[in-house]
């Protein structure tokens, strides 16, 4: 297994584009995760001036709610990771190095495993950013800290891991189907931004709840804030088992698609 990790990481770690995109991702995530609270509060204080009832300040960073808030915000950026996946998987077809890998003696199964490692690595990096930000901001924004307060909602992190991993599995399957980065990114974007939105609008709720990317996104719902409570809106504060199971099933299907393409094709 260790040699598979070495193989995959040599392919990506020595690539400047990889570090550039990952760097942008990390930087962007940190800026947004740290900056959102003061941004919202600025908007709120502007709105307060003409509001009859005073809107209280937002606090996104107190334990335990910080897990929910950060994972929800971070979910918007997973598309950058998806693009990294598409880019590096299509490289293997573009340079035909998948053929050389197999000729050299890498089994098709192991080639697949190296790619799964890559997805896990990216998902892991994303989770680490959230953990780092949560620890720093959480400790500075929570008054009475206890271990249980830190841990109680940290299962949002597990849900976030699943959300990102499922999303990346989707982008990997598309890369294996379409092979070329440009085509894959276009198909991916059209599906994500247009097709699923139209379908979820047109379809009956009974069916639209099965749309894969919508399901992944639904794992972590919009956090309830004091503002929403004010308006009596109440979002889900727990992770729905239906969504979790459905996401797991989709992930398995998507990984199987990638695996079968590697396994059955002529390279």
């Amino acid at each position: 297994m260790k040699h598979l990790l070495r193989i995959e990481f040599r392919k990506v770690f020595k690539n400047n584009i990889f570090w550039l995109t990952l760097g942008l991702y990390v930087f962007g995530m940190i800026i947004i995760l740290i900056g959102t609270e003061s941004f919202i509060n600025k908007v709120v204080s502007n709105a307060n001036r003409n509001s009859p009832i005073p809107i209280p300040d937002f606090s996104l960073y107190a334990f335990p709610y910080i897990w929910h808030n950060l994972t929800y915000l971070a979910g918007f950026f997973k598309i950058i990771l998806a693009f990294i996946v598409i880019l590096f998987i299509s490289n293997e077809f573009n340079y035909n190095t998948i053929r050389q890998n197999i000729i050299t003696g890498l089994s098709r199964e192991n080639f697949f495993i190296t790619k799964v490692f890559f997805l896990i690595f990216l998902t892991f990096v994303s989770c680490m950013i959230i953990i780092a930000v949560a620890i720093i901001l959480g400790f500075t924004h929570t008054d009475d800290i206890s271990i249980s307060m830190i841990i109680i909602k940290s299962h949002f992190l597990a849900a976030y891991f699943l959300e990102v991993f499922a999303f990346l599995s989707f982008s990997m399957a598309l890369s294996f189907i379409f092979k070329r980065a440009g085509v894959t990114i276009i198909v991916f974007s059209i599906y994500l931004f247009i097709v699923e939105n139209i379908l979820s609008f047109k379809l009956n709720e009974d069916y639209s709840k099965y749309l894969p990317l919508k399901t992944f996104g639904r794992l972590i719902d919009i956090p309830n804030t004091s503002l929403m409570k004010l308006f009596g809106v109440n979002f889900r504060e727990y992770i729905d088992p239906f969504d979790t199971v459905l996401t797991l099933i989709y992930t398995i299907i998507l990984l199987t698609i990638s695996y079968l393409i590697i396994k059955k094709s002529n390279w």
Binding site: H3, Q100, L106
Partner: peptide, 21 residues
């Protein structure tokens, strides 16, 4: 010849060496 164009000769061969152990 099929190699990763952005890697140098040694890194390309290290991948081959890792595959072959």
């Amino acid at each position: 010849p099929l190699f990763y164009p952005y890697l140098d000769a040694v890194d390309n061969l290290k991948i081959i060496a890792d595959i072959r152990k």
